[in-house]
Design a protein around this nucleic acid. Structure first.
Lengths: 208, 208
DNA sequence: CCAGTTATACAACAAAAGGGGGATTGACTG
DNA sequence: CAGTCAATCCCCCTTTTGTTGTATAACTGG
């Protein structure tokens, strides 16, 4: 029996979920909440297996609620549920600790399947969401980095780690003067003039 | 008709895929390759819709091959296929440009489903893989960062960007001495002793 | 109103990083 | 074999960064 809590402001969708869950063997809709504030108080006590959280809630939004749930009810798995796949919110939600992310257009059958998947250690995501998530990994390496020799690359990694020149010298068993010379060459090849800029180049400029 | 190419060194699995694909309506196994080198030469000409690539190949591995395919045949979607879900390889593969990542334990039916999903803009992943991928986003912000005042946070962002002290001073309209003082305070709060370490703390220490 | 915090600033110093020049060695290459 | 290149080291010098002491004005909570 999978114990689910629903946090959703739209009453029609909220009720539909409740009926669907309670009408299916193996599922129990243990609570429904119309906003994040009420859920905030009740969820730590209920400790559901799954929290189905709408992103766009009045007042505190779903992402903040997930961030809270993840610490206040660590065993609860959070599935975001939203009408549109707004790019930024997807990643904000995952950073907050969401385990799955589905669209409201998902069919009831697929929704139940997703809940089971979540419980079994998966991370169900809608088509578009999964592709977006995977695409964030696809970083094209800066071509400048390819110009570095293997020794320079080795040294760059230590630079990125934040080691002092003298620490790098010890680590590589070379003179500090050689470290400086390598850095000089690396900066030339990367077209930067200091360590911080080199770190940014190394990380491909934009985080995630 | 979805045109699939298979790159897989294990002949039994390779043949099984070929039979499965050619025996199913809507799929065509247009080519099979037993190693990456042959595929390297042929794929740019074939331009398949989907490449099913085994990760562990003799000689050039599947990840390098995917990196090549993504530039030499940009419309081809790459699905990694591997026996075990070795953590590092998953992310290396996604960075190289893989669109999907499934385990060989996946049933034939699910495999076909995954290929269709891929073609339709999704990114099919096995249970465990999807959870791993999602988990990399779940970065708990360093509590030290919360200790910073808003001004310090503002300054830290400029530090991370790699600006010189004097540039920061101009940008914020304050004296360079004040910049230094702020940095000093920031380093104290983050428990670091230089800019590079602060950048690492800001980015949550481990890349991805 | 007092104590604490924040942002600001100056001075002086120490440490680290950056930017050249020049030189040697070994390995690989046409 | 001559030439190139990667890796190493040394020297000198400048700029930047990090540390510390001190101080003031503004605001904030008890």
């Amino acid at each position: 029996m999978i114990r689910v809590a629903v946090i959703e402001d739209l009453s029609s969708y909220r009720s539909a979920l409740q009926v669907l869950l309670n009408g299916t063997a193996g599922f129990e809709c243990m609570a429904v909440f119309e906003n994040a504030e009420i859920a905030y108080n009740e969820l730590p006590v209920l400790q559901p297996d799954i929290a189905l959280v709408d992103i766009n809630l009045p007042g505190m939004n779903g992402i903040e609620l997930v961030r809270f749930i993840r610490t206040a009810s660590p065993t609860t798995l959070c599935m975001m549920c939203t009408a549109y796949d707004e790019d930024e919110k997807v990643f904000k939600a995952l950073e907050a600790g969401a385990h799955g992310y589905i669209l409201k257009s998902t069919s009831p059958a697929k929704l139940l399947e997703a809940i089971v998947d979540l419980k079994n250690g998966g991370s169900p995501m809608s088509h578009e969401i999964a592709r977006k998530v995977v695409m964030t990994f696809n970083k094209k390496p800066n071509p400048d980095l390819a110009q570095l020799t293997s020794r320079e690359t080795e040294l760059l990694k230590l630079l990125v780690e934040g080691l002092l020149y003298k620490e790098i010298a010890v680590r590589l068993g070379i003179s500090i003067e050689t470290v400086k010379r390598h850095c000089f060459n690396i900066y030339q090849k990367l077209h930067v003039s200091n360590r911080s800029e080199a770190i940014n180049k190394y990380h491909g400029n934009h985080h995630h």
